[in-house]
Amino acid sequence: MYAQMIKSEATQDDPEKLATFQARIDAGEKIEPKDWMPAGYRKTLIRQIGQHAHSEIVGQLPEGNWITRAPTLERKAILLAKVQDEAGHGLYLYCAAETLGVSRDELTEMLLDGRMKYSSIFAYPTLTWADMGAVGWLVDGAAIMNQVPLQRTSYGPYARSMVRICKEESFHQRQGFDIMMKMANGTEAQKRMAQDALNRFWYPSLMMFGPSDKESVHSEQSMAWKIKMNSNDELRQKFVDQTVPQAEYLGLTIPDETLAWNEEKGGYDFAEPDWSEFFDVLKGNGPCSVERIEARQKAWDDSAWVREARLAHAAKKQAAKVAAE
Protein backbone atom coordinates (compact mmCIF):
# COMPACT_ATOMS: atom_id res chain seq x y z
CA MET A 1 0.00 0.00 0.00
CA TYR A 2 1.12 3.60 0.34
CA ALA A 3 2.67 2.37 3.58
CA GLN A 4 4.32 -1.01 2.99
CA MET A 5 6.16 -3.40 5.28
CA ILE A 6 5.70 -1.24 8.35
CA LYS A 7 7.30 -3.12 11.19
CA SER A 8 5.44 -2.77 14.48
CA GLU A 9 7.77 -1.43 17.12
CA ALA A 10 8.14 -3.44 20.29
CA THR A 11 6.88 -1.62 23.28
CA GLN A 12 8.16 -1.82 26.86
CA ASP A 13 5.65 0.20 28.78
CA ASP A 14 3.90 -0.31 32.09
CA PRO A 15 1.62 -3.39 31.57
CA GLU A 16 -1.24 -1.73 33.42
CA LYS A 17 -1.15 1.36 31.20
CA LEU A 18 -0.87 -0.88 28.14
CA ALA A 19 -3.98 -2.80 29.18
CA THR A 20 -5.97 0.41 29.69
CA PHE A 21 -4.76 1.68 26.33
CA GLN A 22 -5.75 -1.54 24.56
CA ALA A 23 -9.16 -1.45 26.26
CA ARG A 24 -9.75 2.04 24.88
CA ILE A 25 -8.87 0.88 21.38
CA ASP A 26 -11.02 -2.24 21.70
CA ALA A 27 -13.93 -0.03 22.78
CA GLY A 28 -13.52 1.95 19.54
CA GLU A 29 -12.24 5.10 21.25
CA LYS A 30 -9.93 7.38 19.27
CA ILE A 31 -6.48 8.13 20.61
CA GLU A 32 -5.65 11.84 20.48
CA PRO A 33 -2.22 13.53 20.44
CA LYS A 34 -2.11 14.45 24.13
CA ASP A 35 -3.35 11.03 25.34
CA TRP A 36 -0.92 8.52 26.80
CA MET A 37 0.20 6.00 24.19
CA PRO A 38 2.79 3.21 24.14
CA ALA A 39 6.15 4.25 22.69
CA GLY A 40 5.84 1.49 20.09
CA TYR A 41 2.44 2.76 18.93
CA ARG A 42 3.87 6.24 18.52
CA LYS A 43 6.97 5.09 16.64
CA THR A 44 5.08 2.71 14.36
CA LEU A 45 2.56 5.40 13.49
CA ILE A 46 5.25 7.98 12.72
CA ARG A 47 6.78 5.51 10.29
CA GLN A 48 3.45 4.51 8.78
CA ILE A 49 1.95 7.99 8.41
CA GLY A 50 5.31 9.38 7.31
CA GLN A 51 5.66 6.76 4.61
CA HIS A 52 2.08 7.38 3.54
CA ALA A 53 2.79 11.13 3.29
CA HIS A 54 6.02 10.58 1.36
CA SER A 55 4.12 8.37 -1.10
CA GLU A 56 1.63 11.14 -1.78
CA ILE A 57 4.44 13.61 -2.41
CA VAL A 58 6.65 11.33 -4.51
CA GLY A 59 3.47 10.15 -6.25
CA GLN A 60 3.20 13.59 -7.82
CA LEU A 61 6.32 12.96 -9.88
CA PRO A 62 5.15 10.23 -12.30
CA GLU A 63 2.03 12.28 -13.05
CA GLY A 64 3.77 15.64 -13.12
CA ASN A 65 5.73 14.08 -15.96
CA TRP A 66 2.62 14.40 -18.17
CA ILE A 67 1.22 17.81 -17.22
CA THR A 68 2.98 19.62 -20.04
CA ARG A 69 2.10 16.89 -22.52
CA ALA A 70 -1.56 16.22 -21.73
CA PRO A 71 -3.52 15.79 -24.99
CA THR A 72 -6.03 18.61 -24.37
CA LEU A 73 -6.26 21.73 -22.25
CA GLU A 74 -9.09 20.14 -20.24
CA ARG A 75 -7.05 16.99 -19.53
CA LYS A 76 -4.16 19.21 -18.49
CA ALA A 77 -6.33 21.20 -16.07
CA ILE A 78 -7.73 17.96 -14.59
CA LEU A 79 -4.29 16.43 -14.19
CA LEU A 80 -3.02 19.61 -12.53
CA ALA A 81 -5.93 19.47 -10.08
CA LYS A 82 -5.19 15.84 -9.33
CA VAL A 83 -1.50 16.43 -8.72
CA GLN A 84 -2.38 19.38 -6.49
CA ASP A 85 -4.66 17.05 -4.50
CA GLU A 86 -1.74 14.66 -4.00
CA ALA A 87 0.27 17.54 -2.54
CA GLY A 88 -2.67 18.31 -0.26
CA HIS A 89 -2.89 14.67 0.84
CA GLY A 90 0.80 14.72 1.67
CA LEU A 91 0.28 17.86 3.76
CA TYR A 92 -2.69 16.45 5.71
CA LEU A 93 -0.62 13.37 6.51
CA TYR A 94 2.57 15.24 7.44
CA CYS A 95 0.49 17.29 9.90
CA ALA A 96 -0.99 14.10 11.37
CA ALA A 97 2.53 12.67 11.80
CA GLU A 98 3.72 15.90 13.40
CA THR A 99 1.14 15.56 16.18
CA LEU A 100 3.19 12.53 17.29
CA GLY A 101 6.25 14.66 17.97
CA VAL A 102 8.28 14.50 14.76
CA SER A 103 8.98 17.66 12.76
CA ARG A 104 8.25 18.24 9.09
CA ASP A 105 11.91 18.81 8.26
CA GLU A 106 12.92 15.62 10.06
CA LEU A 107 10.39 13.66 8.01
CA THR A 108 11.68 15.17 4.76
CA GLU A 109 15.27 14.47 5.71
CA MET A 110 14.46 10.87 6.56
CA LEU A 111 12.94 10.41 3.09
CA LEU A 112 15.95 12.00 1.41
CA ASP A 113 18.58 9.98 3.27
CA GLY A 114 16.67 6.72 2.82
CA ARG A 115 15.65 6.10 6.44
CA MET A 116 12.02 6.35 5.38
CA LYS A 117 10.46 4.80 2.29
CA TYR A 118 7.67 5.61 -0.10
CA SER A 119 5.37 3.21 -1.92
CA SER A 120 7.04 0.85 -4.40
CA ILE A 121 4.53 1.81 -7.09
CA PHE A 122 6.03 5.26 -7.64
CA ALA A 123 9.40 3.82 -8.59
CA TYR A 124 7.92 2.83 -11.96
CA PRO A 125 8.01 5.12 -15.01
CA THR A 126 4.97 6.61 -16.77
CA LEU A 127 5.86 6.10 -20.42
CA THR A 128 2.70 7.07 -22.31
CA TRP A 129 -0.45 9.12 -21.76
CA ALA A 130 -2.35 5.86 -21.19
CA ASP A 131 -0.25 5.44 -18.04
CA MET A 132 -2.11 8.44 -16.57
CA GLY A 133 -5.26 6.40 -17.05
CA ALA A 134 -3.75 3.26 -15.57
CA VAL A 135 -2.33 5.12 -12.56
CA GLY A 136 -5.66 6.74 -11.72
CA TRP A 137 -7.69 3.60 -12.32
CA LEU A 138 -5.37 0.99 -10.74
CA VAL A 139 -3.03 2.81 -8.37
CA ASP A 140 -5.62 5.16 -6.92
CA GLY A 141 -8.10 2.28 -6.97
CA ALA A 142 -5.73 0.17 -4.88
CA ALA A 143 -5.07 3.11 -2.56
CA ILE A 144 -8.80 3.58 -1.96
CA MET A 145 -9.11 -0.10 -0.94
CA ASN A 146 -6.68 0.54 1.87
CA GLN A 147 -7.66 4.08 2.78
CA VAL A 148 -11.38 3.57 3.21
CA PRO A 149 -10.98 1.21 6.19
CA LEU A 150 -8.21 3.46 7.58
CA GLN A 151 -10.85 6.13 8.16
CA ARG A 152 -11.68 4.02 11.24
CA THR A 153 -8.10 3.74 12.43
CA SER A 154 -7.50 4.31 16.15
CA TYR A 155 -5.36 7.45 15.92
CA GLY A 156 -7.68 10.46 15.64
CA PRO A 157 -5.57 12.80 13.46
CA TYR A 158 -4.72 9.94 11.05
CA ALA A 159 -8.37 8.86 10.79
CA ARG A 160 -9.50 12.43 10.14
CA SER A 161 -6.93 13.00 7.41
CA MET A 162 -8.09 9.74 5.81
CA VAL A 163 -11.66 11.02 5.72
CA ARG A 164 -10.56 14.10 3.77
CA ILE A 165 -8.34 12.05 1.47
CA CYS A 166 -11.02 9.47 0.66
CA LYS A 167 -13.46 12.20 -0.33
CA GLU A 168 -10.98 13.40 -2.95
CA GLU A 169 -9.55 10.06 -4.04
CA SER A 170 -12.69 8.95 -5.81
CA PHE A 171 -12.24 11.80 -8.32
CA HIS A 172 -8.75 10.47 -8.99
CA GLN A 173 -9.86 6.97 -9.76
CA ARG A 174 -12.74 8.05 -11.95
CA GLN A 175 -10.61 10.46 -13.98
CA GLY A 176 -8.18 7.57 -14.58
CA PHE A 177 -10.95 5.25 -15.72
CA ASP A 178 -12.27 8.01 -17.95
CA ILE A 179 -8.89 8.24 -19.69
CA MET A 180 -8.83 4.45 -20.08
CA MET A 181 -12.35 4.44 -21.59
CA LYS A 182 -11.32 7.06 -24.11
CA MET A 183 -8.17 5.16 -25.08
CA ALA A 184 -9.83 1.74 -25.14
CA ASN A 185 -12.53 3.04 -27.47
CA GLY A 186 -10.09 4.95 -29.63
CA THR A 187 -7.91 4.02 -32.59
CA GLU A 188 -6.05 0.70 -32.75
CA ALA A 189 -2.88 2.47 -31.64
CA GLN A 190 -4.66 4.00 -28.64
CA LYS A 191 -6.10 0.61 -27.68
CA ARG A 192 -2.62 -0.87 -27.81
CA MET A 193 -1.36 1.91 -25.55
CA ALA A 194 -4.15 1.24 -23.05
CA GLN A 195 -3.40 -2.50 -23.03
CA ASP A 196 0.32 -1.83 -22.68
CA ALA A 197 -0.30 0.45 -19.69
CA LEU A 198 -2.43 -2.23 -18.02
CA ASN A 199 0.26 -4.83 -18.73
CA ARG A 200 2.93 -2.74 -17.05
CA PHE A 201 0.90 -1.52 -14.06
CA TRP A 202 -1.02 -4.69 -13.14
CA TYR A 203 1.60 -6.50 -11.08
CA PRO A 204 3.12 -3.38 -9.50
CA SER A 205 -0.45 -2.48 -8.42
CA LEU A 206 -0.88 -5.91 -6.80
CA MET A 207 2.44 -5.36 -5.00
CA MET A 208 1.09 -2.18 -3.42
CA PHE A 209 -0.75 -4.26 -0.83
CA GLY A 210 2.51 -5.76 0.41
CA PRO A 211 3.60 -9.40 0.65
CA SER A 212 1.29 -12.23 1.55
CA ASP A 213 0.06 -12.37 5.14
CA LYS A 214 1.85 -15.70 5.50
CA GLU A 215 5.13 -13.79 5.25
CA SER A 216 4.04 -10.60 6.93
CA VAL A 217 5.13 -10.97 10.52
CA HIS A 218 4.35 -7.42 11.55
CA SER A 219 0.62 -7.39 11.08
CA GLU A 220 -0.60 -8.76 14.39
CA GLN A 221 0.41 -5.89 16.69
CA SER A 222 -0.69 -3.26 14.17
CA MET A 223 -4.05 -5.00 13.78
CA ALA A 224 -4.52 -5.04 17.56
CA TRP A 225 -3.72 -1.34 17.67
CA LYS A 226 -6.12 -0.75 14.77
CA ILE A 227 -3.54 1.03 12.69
CA LYS A 228 -3.81 -1.76 10.12
CA MET A 229 -7.42 -2.69 9.49
CA ASN A 230 -7.28 -5.55 6.97
CA SER A 231 -4.76 -8.15 5.94
CA ASN A 232 -2.72 -7.61 2.77
CA ASP A 233 -4.23 -10.66 1.05
CA GLU A 234 -7.76 -9.64 1.93
CA LEU A 235 -7.36 -6.21 0.33
CA ARG A 236 -5.53 -7.59 -2.72
CA GLN A 237 -8.36 -10.08 -3.32
CA LYS A 238 -10.92 -7.31 -3.03
CA PHE A 239 -8.97 -5.18 -5.48
CA VAL A 240 -8.74 -7.98 -8.07
CA ASP A 241 -12.43 -8.82 -7.72
CA GLN A 242 -13.36 -5.21 -8.29
CA THR A 243 -10.94 -4.55 -11.13
CA VAL A 244 -11.39 -7.59 -13.39
CA PRO A 245 -14.97 -6.68 -14.47
CA GLN A 246 -13.82 -3.10 -15.08
CA ALA A 247 -11.06 -4.37 -17.39
CA GLU A 248 -13.67 -6.51 -19.19
CA TYR A 249 -15.83 -3.43 -19.65
CA LEU A 250 -12.87 -1.67 -21.24
CA GLY A 251 -12.24 -4.65 -23.48
CA LEU A 252 -8.74 -5.01 -22.07
CA THR A 253 -7.03 -8.21 -20.94
CA ILE A 254 -5.51 -8.62 -17.49
CA PRO A 255 -1.98 -9.90 -18.13
CA ASP A 256 -2.50 -13.11 -16.14
CA GLU A 257 -3.27 -16.37 -17.94
CA THR A 258 -4.12 -18.10 -14.68
CA LEU A 259 -6.84 -15.59 -13.81
CA ALA A 260 -10.13 -17.48 -13.28
CA TRP A 261 -13.32 -17.05 -11.30
CA ASN A 262 -13.46 -19.35 -8.29
CA GLU A 263 -17.09 -20.02 -7.53
CA GLU A 264 -16.31 -21.65 -4.20
CA LYS A 265 -14.53 -18.65 -2.68
CA GLY A 266 -16.64 -16.14 -4.57
CA GLY A 267 -13.57 -14.39 -5.97
CA TYR A 268 -10.91 -14.64 -8.64
CA ASP A 269 -7.84 -16.85 -8.47
CA PHE A 270 -4.88 -14.88 -9.75
CA ALA A 271 -1.11 -15.04 -10.09
CA GLU A 272 1.10 -13.50 -7.39
CA PRO A 273 3.45 -10.74 -8.47
CA ASP A 274 7.18 -11.38 -8.46
CA TRP A 275 8.00 -10.62 -4.84
CA SER A 276 11.74 -10.52 -5.40
CA GLU A 277 11.10 -7.53 -7.67
CA PHE A 278 9.04 -5.90 -4.90
CA PHE A 279 11.79 -6.30 -2.29
CA ASP A 280 14.32 -5.00 -4.76
CA VAL A 281 12.23 -1.90 -5.52
CA LEU A 282 11.71 -1.29 -1.80
CA LYS A 283 15.48 -1.37 -1.32
CA GLY A 284 15.72 1.52 -3.76
CA ASN A 285 16.46 -0.44 -6.95
CA GLY A 286 13.26 0.36 -8.86
CA PRO A 287 13.50 1.67 -12.43
CA CYS A 288 13.02 5.28 -11.26
CA SER A 289 14.11 5.08 -7.59
CA VAL A 290 17.23 7.19 -8.02
CA GLU A 291 15.44 9.74 -10.21
CA ARG A 292 12.59 10.15 -7.68
CA ILE A 293 14.82 10.92 -4.72
CA GLU A 294 17.02 13.17 -6.86
CA ALA A 295 13.91 15.14 -7.84
CA ARG A 296 12.86 15.47 -4.18
CA GLN A 297 16.39 16.45 -3.15
CA LYS A 298 16.54 19.09 -5.89
CA ALA A 299 13.15 20.52 -4.91
CA TRP A 300 14.24 20.64 -1.26
CA ASP A 301 17.57 22.30 -2.03
CA ASP A 302 16.23 24.73 -4.63
CA SER A 303 13.44 25.94 -2.35
CA ALA A 304 15.67 26.44 0.70
CA TRP A 305 16.01 30.15 -0.07
CA VAL A 306 12.21 30.51 -0.26
CA ARG A 307 11.76 28.93 3.17
CA GLU A 308 14.39 31.26 4.61
CA ALA A 309 13.22 34.38 2.79
CA ARG A 310 9.61 33.96 3.91
CA LEU A 311 10.73 33.70 7.53
CA ALA A 312 12.96 36.75 7.18
CA HIS A 313 10.14 38.72 5.55
CA ALA A 314 7.69 37.78 8.32
CA ALA A 315 10.24 38.80 10.99
CA LYS A 316 10.82 42.14 9.25
CA LYS A 317 7.10 42.86 8.99
CA GLN A 318 6.61 41.90 12.65
CA ALA A 319 9.42 44.24 13.69
CA ALA A 320 7.92 47.11 11.68
CA LYS A 321 4.54 46.47 13.28
CA VAL A 322 6.01 46.52 16.79
CA ALA A 323 7.92 49.74 15.99
CA ALA A 324 4.74 51.44 14.77
CA GLU A 325 2.80 50.61 17.96
Binding site: Y92, E98, R104, R310, H313, K317
Partner: peptide
Protein backbone atom coordinates in the same frame (compact mmCIF):
# COMPACT_ATOMS: atom_id res chain seq x y z
CA UNK B 1 -10.14 21.14 9.80
CA UNK B 2 -6.42 20.63 10.30
CA UNK B 3 -3.13 22.45 10.50
CA UNK B 4 -0.38 23.77 8.27
CA UNK B 5 2.91 25.66 8.33
CA UNK B 6 3.20 29.34 7.40
CA UNK B 7 5.39 32.30 8.29
CA UNK B 8 2.65 34.79 9.21
CA UNK B 9 -1.14 35.11 9.38
CA UNK B 10 -1.63 36.29 5.80
CA UNK B 11 0.55 33.45 4.54
CA UNK B 12 -1.41 30.99 6.69
CA UNK B 13 -4.71 32.13 5.18
CA UNK B 14 -3.26 31.79 1.69
CA UNK B 15 -2.01 28.27 2.41
CA UNK B 16 -5.27 27.30 4.13
CA UNK B 17 -7.11 28.34 1.00
CA UNK B 18 -4.91 26.03 -1.11
CA UNK B 19 -4.81 23.09 1.28
Amino acid sequence: VGSLHATDAAHAIQNARDV
